[in-house]
Simulated assay, not measured.
Amino acid sequence: MVKGFVSGSFGPLVLAVLGIAGAGGFLFYYSGLYLPWMLGPLFFVMAAKMKFGKFMQWNSKLRNAGLIMLGLQLGSSFTSDSVAQMAKYLPVMFFTTVIIILFTVLTAIFLMKRMKLTLNTSLLGSFPGGLSQMVVLSEEIEDADESIVAFMQTLRIILVISIVPWLVVHVMSAQPSTGAASALVHRSTFSFHYSWMHAILMAAVFSSIIFFGKKINFPLPFMLGPLLTAAAFNLTGFEAPQIPVFWLNLSQLLIGAHLGYTLKVNNPRLFRKMFGMIFVINVLLIGFCYLVSYGLKNYLSLPVNELFLSLAPGGVAEMSVTALSVHSNVSIVTSFHLFRILFILFLLSPVMKFIAGRRKREQLE
């Protein structure tokens, strides 16, 4: 049994993927590119899988480990001041979420007509939520094509984490914000400085949240469990741990490798046909979020680069990592993206399921 677990779950083929991801991270890092430990593994693993896919394996437990480390770091940025600031921006979160989703609905309808997709496939592929959450939803909605949704979401994430950091650093003012900004300095490279009692208690709490979160299909339980735990520790007087740079980079590597590996190319001809249009639509979506950020900057006390990161159409994990790398207020950026994904999952997805079910009943009558 042990031999089967090692060879099947974390065997040499999985280690080979980790090696490819590490090589991509090092190359991007020494080339001076942004988000090297996420983008490098993503592109290297994606390219290797397209060429040598049958010789590669991956284990999602590795990505979950990366999300746990990232969640702890994000949660450590939540303080009483940042929570009060988040409450202040709830109306802005709602307004921006609605207009961004309306924009994606319009582009999804256009894509549906041009590519002859079902409406739900086009919507789930276009919504700026997390890749894994949208793919899971596509499995639950009968007329949605999981492989097309995965392809559209993966391409969107690649474009967002390739374009958005560049815009923030080179086009917008990228000065660190004064809130709960999380810098990658003044932190040890490898070791944690945290008491064993606190670490055991924290692990027990976030493990419980993960367990029950999975039971109720809560989004991103492996990131939100540690995030909520670290935030609760901070707010109740216990100090949440700061993740050392090495482990934070490792978490990005694991998440990037997972994204690169999960790209599905089951219908190469269709994907080649769709690539150009999806590319243009997502660039337009990024541009729309950019314009909204500048339109709101005079009415809010948030720096425009921070606002743009909060609105950019990436997943929670990807945009939070970007906020960390450019020293933005991580709690604000994370809050905006959590609000959006919860809005999609708990408001829009039930509506989509209801419409899909009613449509199916009408066809059977």
Rank of each mutant, 00 (worst) to 15 (best):
K3V: 06
P12D: 02
V14Y: 04
A21W: 04
G22R: 01
G24T: 02
Y30V: 05
S31G: 13
S31A: 15
P41N: 01
F43A: 05
M46F: 05
A48L: 02
M50V: 05
F52K: 03
K54W: 06
F55W: 10
W58C: 02
N59L: 08
L62D: 02
M69T: 11
L72Y: 04
Q73R: 06
L74C: 12
S77H: 11
T79H: 06
S80T: 13
S80E: 10
D81Q: 13
D81F: 12
V83K: 02
Q85M: 14
A87K: 10
P91S: 09
M93S: 07
I100K: 00
V105K: 03
I109D: 09
I109V: 14
K113Q: 12
T118G: 04
T121F: 06
L124V: 00
F127C: 02
P128C: 02
G129R: 02
G130K: 01
S132F: 01
V135S: 05
V135R: 00
F151Q: 00
M152A: 14
T154C: 02
R156Y: 06
I158T: 10
W166L: 15
L167F: 06
S173Y: 06
S173R: 08
A174N: 13
Q175P: 01
G179N: 10
A181C: 13
L184N: 09
L184H: 04
H186A: 15
S188Y: 09
T189F: 15
T189L: 15
T189S: 12
F192E: 04
H193T: 11
W196S: 11
W196E: 10
M197R: 09
A199V: 05
A199S: 14
I209H: 01
I209E: 00
F212T: 15
M223L: 15
L224M: 15
L224E: 03
L227C: 12
F233A: 12
N234T: 13
N234F: 09
T236F: 14
F238Q: 09
F238K: 06
P241W: 04
I243E: 05
I243L: 11
P244G: 08
V245M: 14
W247C: 07
S251R: 08
L253F: 05
L254A: 05
A257G: 11
H258F: 13
G260S: 02
L263E: 00
P268H: 02
M274H: 06
G276C: 07
G276F: 13
F279W: 11
N282V: 11
N282T: 12
L284F: 14
L285T: 14
L296N: 07
K297P: 00
V304R: 05
V304D: 08
N305D: 12
F308C: 08
F308R: 05
L309I: 14
S310T: 11
L311D: 08
A312F: 04
P313K: 04
G315Q: 09
A317V: 07
M319G: 06
T322L: 15
V326W: 07
V330G: 10
I332P: 14
V333Q: 08
F339N: 11
R340M: 11
F343T: 12
F343E: 08
L347D: 03
A356I: 00
A356V: 03
R358E: 03
L364M: 09
